[in-house]
């Protein structure tokens, strides 16, 4: 991919804050029309990276280029062309749903009549038209998230930045958000999103990176990453015994030992795996397709991050 083709170009981005390296040399590119994912456990540096992408947080070193412009210099022109949906609820609680969009349009110097037209269109698209005059305080979590998304689109951005767009939502709301983001994607909008829902990343992202401790561990398409780091299938074996462990060691079968459970990664047609099935899968065995979550946990470990 040449630099002319990419809408976003991040090179050697570092952020040291209070003596701690939050982002440690991150580089990636996003092509027009692409949805790019930043995955990682809590504290991996996702939000810090995102904040540097829209010029909220100045990098310690490295560069961010958007639409061929340098963010450090042309931040104002760049921000006019991006839409940011932040993780927290940053809506104005004193204003109505519609006023939130109109006031925000004002920050982009969009004329009043044009702002009204766009607000009406966006409220319709996000199924909020009936709540246009409601106070933000009276909205549900799902509605707040949709309004944040609508607000991020009020300037008709060329790039949408989504920081954990569905965290804390119920399944219905989450699917509604995914549905809308997919529609926007289909209309050609480029997007960068962070998430720790692997299902979300697999569904929305064309390409993604998994970051941990401020560094990119892997980069690729979701399907590719699964094949490369896990294999197509997983056998979950409950209550493993010593004999199984010995067998896996002897035959050098890729697996993770979780104590109460062993995850065996397999291409499916392996004779040794068939042997495992016959000899050790008398009781508690689950055969399933590998997911991005397997990749994520294999690469970032299973310890709690708090």
């Amino acid at each position: 991919m040449s630099s002319r083709e990419s809408i976003l170009e991040v090179s050697a981005l570092r952020k040291i804050f209070r003596g701690r390296t939050a982002v440690d040399g991150v580089s990636f590119r996003v092509a027009p029309g692409e949805c790019f994912g930043l995955l990682g456990p809590n504290g991996a540096g996702k939000t810090t990276t995102i904040r540097m992408l829209y010029g909220f947080s100045p990098p310690t070193s490295g560069t961010v280029r958007l639409f061929g412009m340098d963010l450090a210099r042309d931040w104002r022109r760049i921000r006019a062309r991006i839409g940011v949906c932040q993780q927290e609820n940053t809506l104005d609680p004193d204003l109505t749903v519609e006023e939130n969009l109109l006031v925000f349009a004002g920050y982009f110097a969009i004329g009043r009549r044009e702002a009204r037209a766009r607000a009406a269109e966006l409220l319709e698209f996000f199924a909020l038209a009936s709540r246009a005059r409601a106070r933000v305080m009276d909205l549900s979590g799902g509605m707040i998230r949709r309004l944040l998304l609508a607000r991020a689109l009020v300037n008709r951005p060329d790039l949408l930045i989504l920081d954990e767009p569905t965290t804390g939502l119920d399944p219905q709301s989450r699917h509604q958000v995914w549905d809308r983001v997919e529609k926007l994607k289909a209309s050609g909008l480029s997007a960068v999103l962070t998430t720790h829902y692997m299902e979300e990343a697999a569904r929305l992202c064309d390409r993604l990176v998994i970051i941990d401790h401020g560094k990119i561990l892997v980069e690729g398409r979701p399907g590719e990453l699964i094949l490369r780091h896990v294999g197509p299938q997983v056998v979950e074996i409950g209550g493993p015994d010593g004999a199984l462990r010995e067998y896996l060691q002897e035959n050098a079968l890729p697996h993770d030992d979780l104590g109460e459970r062993i995850l065996l990664y397999t291409a499916g047609d392996d004779g040794r795996v068939a042997a495992v099935r016959e000899r050790f899968c008398l009781r508690r065995c689950t055969f399933r397709d590998a997911t991005l979550e397997d990749v994520f946990l294999r690469l970032t470990g299973r310890e709690l991050r708090e």
Binding site: Y54, F56, R76, R77, R79, A80, I82, V84, Q86, E88, N89, T90, L91, D92, P93, F104, Y107, F108, A109, R151, N155
Partner: peptide, 14 residues
Amino acid sequence: YQKTFDAMLATPLS
């Protein structure tokens, strides 16, 4: 509490 400035700092405002 309202993070109003955070939202504004994602727009062409300094």
